[in-house]
Amino acid sequence: MNIKRRQTIKAGSSLALVAAAISAGVLPTSAFADWNKAAFEAKNMADVLKALGGASAEKSADIVITAPDIAENGAVVPVAVASKIAGTQSISILVEKNPSSLAAEFDILPGTEPNVGTRVKMGQSSNVHAVVKAGGKYYVATKEIKVTLGGCGG
């Protein structure tokens, strides 16, 4: 079964939106942090932490991971992370048994709530870690997600 064959969602046919996007034409990307290649290539959680600039992470009950216990399709596993730690600066989602652990990293800017969600691929049943950086320290919460159909590769 090749899940990649899924047709690209016929996203937004709104012409007005397209026109507006073209006229806006501003790309504020340069103001933000560059993509951290080392972190995204790291194979395990310790390496990811090192690449992100931390040494160790403390377990915290103030991080809430919202995700299914059993994911039927490993290609699309919805994961949401909410942090109650004051001064949360970034939230990272790691899948322990994926070829590269780090799936996504969100920089939480002042005024933005430390509550983000996305969908990740999981090759097999694995622990999913949410790493929160707050005040220069790292905190982690873990949830195990069982996958009945893997989502990485063929």
Binding site: K4, R6, T8, I9, A11, P28, T29, A31, F32, A33, W35, N36, A39, F40, A75, V76, V77, P78, A80, V95, N98, S100, L102, A103, A104, E105, F106, D107, I108, L109, G111, T112, E113, N115, V116, G117, T118, R119, V120, K121, M122, G151, C152
Partner: peptide, 28 residues
């Protein structure tokens, strides 16, 4: 990256492990 009134509200880095046709939600 997301901006509101010219002010950045979120910046995210994605690896290849984010699903096809990525969904992202956040609040500010």
């Amino acid at each position: 990256t997301a901006t509101w009134n010219g002010k950045p509200v979120l910046s995210a880095n994605f690896g290849p492990a984010v699903s096809q046709n990525p969904v992202m939600n956040f609040t500010f």
